[in-house]
Amino acid sequence: DGDATPMAFMDWPFDGLTLGYAWNWGAAALGDSRLRFCYGRGFEAGLQTEEMASIDDMDFAGFSWDVIKKDEMFAYIQTFKAFNLINYPNFQDPIINANFGTMSGMGDRKNLGNILHTAAAFHNKVSNLHYFLAGGWSQTQPDADGMFNDYAAMAMRMAGPNTENEDGYSVYAGVRYDLDNIGLKLGAEFNYGTENWLAMSPGHDDIYMSKLAARGQVYEVYGLYDLPTGEMISKYAKTFIRFGYQHYEFDYFGSGDWNMYAYDLSDPGDQAKMMMMGLDPVEQADQVYLTFEAFF
């Protein structure tokens, strides 16, 4: 029940395994530590026939390290690599799944290359004030089909697939003040993503889109109101109402997507390219939310 959005630069549903080892640093001020190796499959290509175009499974592998965990102080590092990224996933509707490549103009489903990703976060508490700071780095490593392709320039034969590695960065910070006597917690958060930033976060629960994937800035204010019903069920249970407001300001097109070039929304030339492709990107978005949440 801490931050409005957990530090979820990596929030991709996958099947896999985790192996870890935990220890105590031996110094009271440093507390405990835990290192985990994680591996999983984020896309299963399924059975292949000789007549089908070969598609490799999309896998993830990396390390998750709770460097320091002492009371409210928490330092965390996460690094992983995504292998054989696909240009678009499977869809539950069989008609859409079979025809999406034609309808979207993206062609057959195929692998595009790899992504290297690293993030770190630090959280602590002073009296009733919580604060945290997190940062992320992503790097695309495309194959011959490219990532962040300028499809408008490619259509005019002015460019080919972008096979260069592209780096992106994000910063994420927030504070929260707990009013324990009335069970109310009030907080504010800010995050910013650069032109080629990628957050692997399709599992987000934001109403509009993953705020941590935004290429631009997102401002959020929120509140949490604890309910006593959780403790009535179990001493481990928590129930609360979450309410808040988010404001998105996008600087570049395609947040969360590695297929298309991150067109600059303020550049007239890039605006003309997007218009040529029939794209009308959102520059700002606002949303208010109210949820009831329970943890057991």
Rank of each mutant, 00 (worst) to 15 (best):
M158H: 07
G183W: 05
A159G: 03
F190W: 03
R215Q: 06
N191H: 08
E195P: 04
N165W: 08
A199H: 13
S170L: 12
M147D: 00
Y192Q: 11
A173C: 12
E189S: 11
F190Q: 01
K185P: 10
N149L: 12
G183D: 04
G223L: 12
D205E: 13
A153F: 02
Q217M: 12
G160C: 03
T194S: 15
W197D: 04
G160M: 03
S201Y: 07
M200R: 12
G136Y: 11
F148P: 01
G135E: 09
M200P: 08
E220S: 14
S210N: 15
P202F: 05
A159E: 13
A173M: 05
N165I: 00
F190E: 01
A134D: 15
G136W: 04
G136F: 13
W137D: 00
G135W: 13
V218C: 04
S210G: 14
T194P: 13
W197I: 07
V218R: 05
Y219V: 03
Y192R: 10
H204P: 00
M147H: 01
T194H: 05
S201T: 15
S201A: 15
M154F: 02
Q141Y: 10
M154G: 03
Y208P: 06
M154A: 05
Y225L: 12
D143L: 06
Y151W: 15
Q217A: 08
N191Q: 09
Y172V: 11
G223S: 07
H204S: 00
L198Y: 09
E195D: 14
N181E: 13
Q139D: 07
R157T: 09
G223Q: 12
G216D: 07
R157Q: 12
K211M: 14
Q217C: 04
A134F: 08
A213E: 10
P142K: 05
M156V: 06
A144Y: 11
V221K: 01
A144Q: 15
P202D: 01
Y151G: 00
A199F: 09
A152H: 06
E164F: 05
L198G: 03
L179T: 08
N162L: 00
N196I: 10
Y225S: 02
G187I: 13
